[in-house]
Nucleic acid binder design. Structure first.
Length: 215
DNA sequence: ACCCAGGTGGCCC
DNA sequence: GGGCCACATGGG
């Protein structure tokens, strides 16, 4: 089985709608940090609290009371880290881009990526999520799920994030829609994995248990 | 009562 | 460059 066949099999099984719902690129940035090591259910609760509190704007987030923000972040875990990283990210945009997110995101893709990576709490995956879903750039998000899935299916195996990203980007057309769709299919598939439901339908697609930490 | 989650950063060798 | 750990709440 190769990548194309996997994608085609997953496409037949799942009919995915919008994968990363958001009202603005800034909201994608916030969501990208919140979703680290957590499910989207928790993230939407946090985002909703922030929306009500008016914090989904650069200046408000940058100048907010940290304790208040922490309470909003709490459901997603690592709340102290995430709250301070979110506020400092907003502070960076405020100071360096006149509070204008598009000014940050409109540069050359790899330059933007480097700038994102320089911010605390933004690593490879978070930076690429922001680029792909917030900035509409063709950067594949080589998440742990994708790594596991491609490994278990024998399609590609590497411990290195950039290796995996390079592989997928070399196999697919450099197209935002294709990258978003492929990422969404892999993650969605993994979330209904054997880990939670032994011998789930998902296993049948990959031909074996695709995602559980242990087989 | 376990095990894991749409990671990141710091420290060690 | 790799291996291990803290960070913390919520769902299966």
């Amino acid at each position: 089985m190769d990548l194309e066949e996997l994608i085609s099999a997953l496409s037949e099984e799942y009919d995915l709608g919008v994968w990363w719902p958001s009202e603005s690129p800034f909201e994608v940035m916030v969501g990208a940090i919140l979703t680290q090591q957590t499910n989207w259910n928790s993230v939407s609760r946090s985002l909703e609290m922030m929306r009500r509190g008016g914090l989904l704007e650069v200046d408000k987030m940058a100048e907010c009371d940290l304790a208040v923000l922490e309470e909003m972040v709490r459901p997603t875990g690592f709340y102290r880290q995430k709250a301070s990283r979110l506020r400092s990210m907003a502070g960076h945009i405020q100071r360096n881009h006149g509070s204008d997110v598009s000014s940050l995101l409109q540069g050359e893709t790899m330059k933007v990526r480097e700038e994102l990576l320089s911010l605390p709490g933004i690593g490879n995956e978070t930076a690429d999520s922001i680029l792909l879903f917030g900035a509409g750039r063709p950067k594949f998000v080589a998440a742990a799920y994708v790594s596991r899935l491609l490994d278990r299916t024998g399609i590609f195996s590497s411990k290195d994030y950039m290796d995996l990203q390079g592989f997928v980007e070399s196999e697919l057309p450099p197209d935002v829609t294709a990258y978003r769709r492929t990422y969404a299919l892999c993650v969605h598939h993994c979330q209904r994995s054997c880990l939670r439901r032994p011998r789930c339908n998902a296993c049948a697609i990959a031909g074996r248990c695709a995602t559980g930490l242990r087989r």
